[in-house]
Design a protein around this nucleic acid. Structure first.
Ligand SMILES: [Mn+2]
Ligand SMILES: [Mn+2]
Ligand SMILES: [Zn+2]
Ligand SMILES: [Zn+2]
Lengths: 164, 164
DNA sequence: TCGCACATGAAAAACTTTTTCATCTAGGAG
DNA sequence: CTCCTAGATGAAAAAGTTTTTCATGTGCGA
């Protein structure tokens, strides 16, 4: 069978790394998600798909995929180490603070701003990082402020409310 | 002696929290630093200034100070939970990827971009987060790619301002 | 098909962050 | 100024996260 059979196979090969079923599974999980996922969530999702995978491999794989730009790392105010699918090329994220949905956009038009800051500070600016937070259409009227909705499981166990 | 004697005292009071020597010490350490500091670095710096403080308190204090906007949380590609002094009001960071120096700027002019992305995605955008990375003047020609230079020890302490 | 460099994963180590709870203290009341 | 107490502290332990180890497995070029 050709590598076509494995979604993402071409891109993994192109990245110079081996195409393993674990990598394909992790990539599939991220690409199949509308939001950002944490390590434990990816682990659970892959296993739910009845594929064996270890936590260590999830960590390593997410790093590999991100370095190949096949997925992107997302930072939230609290808790980073989260990942979302990557659009083409340079991209930034718009994140729904209620359900976690992630939309990538690439037109950032920061040229003038960067030039201005560079002139003023005497820095050579090499990279930038922009994230927008808000409410997606479906979450517009949600009065809550909770993070992920059902379908976007929380990573691990939450600190939870005060003890009795 | 009046509360004037304690740098940041006024601002802590204004925030509705008690002015403790630990809070003043942490604030002084952050304000005395040109870069971003992690929890352990703050702990070490405060102790070096011969002030007693516990790790738990450092965590809690950094959170309190950040919520009062007296200091700001900085996210790096790897490793967040770092803090830098805050400029006035809304601010973004320009970070030297070699020495860690942090410069805050507030003119982000993202209005048009935000409008455009909002229209296109149907999101209501409530907040944004922008960080610029580059080389400060002094690190311009540094061929290295290491993070903090001497003076910005990873786990060590900054020579920073000792207690008055 | 073979061989081996690369990849995996269970377990343990290492590290980070939060919770507990006994003790302390900032600062307002009197 | 002295008292009082809600708020703050910190040592220790618990809880959670990430990395390291190393024996075993496997992708893929020869
Ligand atoms: Mn951009
Ligand atoms: Mn972050
Ligand atoms: Zn949403
Ligand atoms: Zn620098």
């Amino acid at each position: 069978m050709t590598s076509e059979a494995v979604p993402g196979g071409e891109r993994l090969r192109a990245g110079g790394v081996r195409l393993t079923r674990q990598r394909a599974a992790v990539l599939a999980v991220i690409e199949g998600s509308q939001g950002h996922l944490g390590v434990r969530e990816v682990l659970a999702a892959v296993r739910k798909g009845r594929r064996r995978i270890g936590l260590t491999t999830v960590y390593r794989t997410l790093e590999v995929l991100a370095s190949l730009n096949l997925i992107r790392k997302v930072h939230l105010r609290d808790g980073c180490q989260r990942y979302a699918r990557a659009g083409a090329g340079h991209g930034h994220h718009l994140i729904c603070s209620r359900c976690g949905r992630v939309v990538e956009f690439s037109d950032c038009r920061l040229g003038a701003l960067i030039q201005s800051v560079a002139d003023r500070t005497q820095f050579t600016i090499e990279d930038h990082w922009l994230e927008l937070f808000g409410r997606c259409k479906g979450c517009r009227n949600g009065r809550g402020r909770m993070r992920r909705r059902s379908g976007f499981r929380e990573t691990g166990t939450r600190p939870g409310p005060a003890a009795p």
